[in-house]
Design a protein around this nucleic acid. Structure first.
Length: 489
RNA sequence: GGCCCGUUAGCUCAACUGGUAGAGCAGCGGACUCUUAAUCCGCGGGUUCCAGGUUCGAGUCCUGGACGGGUCACCA
């Protein structure tokens, strides 16, 4: 324990000796700090004197300036700060001395009249004040605050106390999610919850987390996607469903990947992937306008425009335009597979389609800053999508890329149970070859398709990444309150 | 997992070619009844991330490790 912590503990003991309840059950509160500031901040000094507005406002002490028998300090509700003026002749000598047992970081409530100082700052002239909670640790420094990124994530409570802009990110995130719910609710979608613990982890190509259920004696997997369950619901006649929930993927961690992440997934019967492109434009454009008040977002050095319509680029054309490879090179399948192999020395390139996918991820995606629908990727990397009528090697699928990140992935859902069975078998063969993220065979899902899946389009949108775009944050950890870190000690 | 960078007081940071580990804020004591990075005087505070090594001597150099950041790989 450091000396400051010992002193704080001693002060707390003194408060107990003074008969103060150090863990009170309730606090007087007429206003929060932000309410005081927004309701009365614009009133003039004279108006405040005339109206004699009495408030009882709780907050955390962030700074103290003591000048003998008078003290100024600021309290905060995490959103705004409010100055308090404490005078010995107003609160009495005993109470005034009691305040010396309070430290920066403690939570108190202050009761008194609002006024403006000679410099024009809205303040509370304290008549009484109550102790609410002690901070047994000193807060970080008042100018620079808490800068250490690791500490900010490990002690998010401190981050929120010291860095008010952090709260704004999560307010934005909250608003975005609630707007998404409104958007789909208004369109007659039903919000559902499907299993997070699944006997067969399906719906995506990724490695799962494994767990075990004692009573049933079975292995379970944390879901990597809700997809197969949502489509069962579509078979069941729920024509429009959506789910906003966590997925878990046992893969690497990076500035764009957290092992658990939030995904919006939705399915619409009687539609195809073209309909979803329109819907996606509408959704994200309206989110941008609601959140930022305009149709563009600043992201790093770039400005992203969400004005409709967005670019729709065929996968193969995207490759030609952005990979730097001549169109003729793509006719040479072996050559392309070699190029892909060189791009991913640790991964075996099993097919031409995979090779194209790799070149796309490495050389094309980073160049797509403006919202772009990349449509019709190879079927081989899309085991759950309908293939294209015109070219059976292509999937009726799009990936939405914004700011160089894959934000959404959607397709016309494969409805043919026999074809699905074949695709699963293909994936099973890949698994045998050691591709751990290949899809499992899900017989129950095939069986559900055998009851008839109507023409359906489905889409997943990465919520965290969308927040990153709107909040202008380059790291996914900045938009997740508690990103996964290795435990210390 | 590879590579690069970082880790020094509660916080933010200094410390040259290896030579007694410092500052500001925060804290403690004192002065001060409109301050706001309050001011003025005084004081305390360190496993320099950890373990080895080189050296008369290591915060500094070397080896290994921990944690984080960036980047690449895997993935969304």
């Amino acid at each position: 324990m450091i000396d400051q912590e010992i002193i704080r503990k001693q002060k707390l003991e003194k408060l107990v000796e003074e008969g103060i309840d150090i863990f009170p059950h309730k606090a007087e509160k007429t206003h929060s700090v932000i309410e005081v500031v927004s309701n009365y901040g614009s009133l003039t000094k004279e108006a405040l004197e005339e109206q004699k507005i009495k408030v009882a406002v709780p907050g955390r002490i962030l700074s103290i300036r003591k000048m003998g028998r008078a003290t100024f300090f600021h309290i905060s509700d995490g959103q705004n700060t409010l100055q308090v003026y404490l005078r010995e002749d107003k609160v009495g000598k005993k109470n005034y001395n009691l305040f010396s047992l309070f430290d920066i970081g403690d939570i108190i409530s202050v009761e008194g009249l609002l006024f403006k100082t000679k410099t024009g700052e809205l303040s509370v002239q304290a008549e009484t004040f109550n102790f609410l909670a002690k901070s047994l640790h000193p807060l970080p420094e008042k100018w620079h605050g808490l800068q250490d990124v690791e500490l900010r994530y490990r002690k998010r409570h401190l981050d929120l106390i010291m860095n008010p802009e952090v709260r704004k990110i999560f307010q934005l995130r909250c608003t975005m999610i609630s707007e998404i719910r409104k958007f789909f609710d208004q369109r007659g979608y039903l919000e559902v919850e499907t299993p997070m613990m699944q006997p067969i982890p399906g719906g995506a190509l990724a490695r799962p987390f494994k767990t075990y259920h004692n009573a049933l004696g079975i292995d379970l997997y944390l879901r990597i996607a809700p997809e197969l369950y949502l489509k069962r619901l579509t078979v069941g006649g729920l024509e429009k469903v959506y789910e906003i929930n966590r997925n878990f993927r046992n893969e690497g961690i990076s500035s764009e990947h957290n092992p658990e992440f939030t995904m919006l997934e939705f399915y619409e019967a009687y539609s195809d992937y073209h309909d979803l492109m329109d819907l996606t434009e509408e959704l994200i454009n309206s989110l941008c306008q609601t959140l930022l008040g305009k149709e563009e977002a600043v992201f790093g050095e770039k400005t992203i425009s969400f004005k409709r319509p967005w670019k729709r680029l065929k996968f193969k054309d995207a490759l030609v335009q952005h990979s730097g490879l001549a169109p003729s090179r793509f006719e040479d399948e072996k050559g392309i597979m070699e190029i892909a192999s060189n791009l991913t020395p640790e991964k075996k390139v099993m097919s031409f389609g995979k090779a194209l996918d790799i070149i796309f991820d490495k050389n094309v995606k980073p160049n797509l800053v403006q919202p772009t629908f990349v449509i019709n990727p190879p079927k081989i990397v899309s085991p759950l999508a309908k293939s294209s009528k015109k070219d059976p090697d292509e999937a009726e699928r799009f990936e939405l890329v914004i700011g160089g990140m894959e934000i959404a992935n959607a397709f016309s859902e494969l409805a043919d149970p026999e074809e699905q069975q074949k695709r699963f078998e293909q994936q099973a063969a890949e698994r045998k070859k050691g591709v751990e993220e290949a899809h499992w065979i899900d017989k129950d899902y095939i069986n559900s398709l055998e009851y008839g899946l109507p023409p359906t389009a489905g889409e997943g949108i990465g919520i965290d990444r969308l927040v990153m775009i709107f909040a202008n944050k380059k790291s996914i950890r900045e938009v997740i309150l508690f990103p996964l870190l290795r435990p210390k000690d």
